[in-house]
């Protein structure tokens, strides 16, 4: 898609993948951070990671296994906290622990049988060995995430403002909320191979946190977060490939540096009043 700008095929694929993944994650990240379900995103990311590890071990389609695991966890959180009479926070802790245990078990086992190299890609991401079809899938999930927010913007803003108030004004909170969890699971699973299970959380949370330092309106956050994410991710991909550094970890570090700078530069913490 970007071959007319970047001639090198590997670099072009890496840039495209990072661009689409960062936009999708950043758009959903605004919702995740504002609804304060970061721990759900965190648990789903690790469930998808566990699903991918199991899929890799069983020689099944890694992406489909990651999607199934992510979606299952998303829909288990509510019933588990209801039936087991534990708080959603505890339910998330349980599911996170199980996911990590499963993922680490299979990755460790694959290392003992000589499949360690492919498993490392799940941990830290791999932007070099991507197929064209995978880039197309990322482009599709990027469009799906943006369309999801545009079409359900009104309902999403209500839920972000306050779920109880959203319900009281007549918004159908539950169906929209479950649809949101499904799209997050899908996005996380598709982005997992390029960003990695341990780092995907940075893509989900940091762009929104950076945007929040400067935006007073939610609509502005939905524009600023993906632009920031895309700029940092593309820069990270280009720099990583140019200097032979691991792309996803380098980009995650760049995200953190920009976030720290944003906190210091944020006008929200500055007193602008001057007595004339």
């Amino acid at each position: 898609m970007l071959e007319f700008i970047i001639q090198n095929n590997i670099v072009c694929h890496a840039v495209e993948a990072m661009l689409f993944a960062s936009i999708a994650c950043a758009v959903l990240g605004v919702i995740i951070t504002q609804v304060q379900i970061s721990s759900i995103g965190f648990t789903m990311a690790h469930a998808a990671f566990a699903g991918a590890a199991v899929g890799m071990f069983l020689s099944l389609n890694v992406t489909i296994c990651a999607i199934v695991a992510g979606v299952c966890v998303a829909f288990l959180i509510g019933p588990l906290s209801d039936k087991a009479r534990v708080s959603p926070d505890t339910a998330l802790g349980l599911l996170f622990g199980i996911s990590m245990a499963v993922a680490i078990f299979f990755i460790a086992y694959m290392q003992t049988i000589g499949q360690g190299f492919s498993a490392m890609g799940l941990l830290f991401g791999d932007v070099i060995s991507l197929y064209r079809e995978e880039i197309y899938l990322l482009a599709i999930i990027c469009v799906v995430s943006v369309v999801f927010v545009v079409v359900l913007y009104k309902e999403i803003t209500g839920i972000i403002f306050n779920k109880r108030i959203a319900e009281s004004v007549g918004i159908q909170v539950k169906p929209v909320y479950y649809a949101l969890l499904f799209v997050i699971a899908l996005t996380v699973a598709l982005c997992l191979p390029i960003i990695g299970g341990l780092l995907i959380y940075v893509w989900l949370v940091t762009p929104a946190a950076i945007a929040l330092q400067f935006c007073y309106r939610l609509s502005a956050m939905f524009v600023v977060a993906p632009i920031v994410a895309a700029a940092i991710s593309v820069s990270g991909a280009l720099a990583g490939l140019e200097y032979s550094l691991p792309v996803a970890p380098l980009t995650a570090v760049l995200f953190s540096i920009v976030f720290i700078a944003a906190v210091f530069l944020s006008p929200k913490r500055r007193v602008t009043f001057r007595k004339s």
Partner: peptide
């Protein structure tokens, strides 16, 4: 204090239930 909603947006939210799904 960091809630990213203006007063106008919050009041307009009161209409969201009556507007219906997928409509602006």
């Amino acid at each position: 204090p960091l809630t990213p909603f203006t007063v106008e947006e919050v009041v307009l939210m009161g209409r969201f239930g009556t507007i219906g799904l997928f409509r602006k």
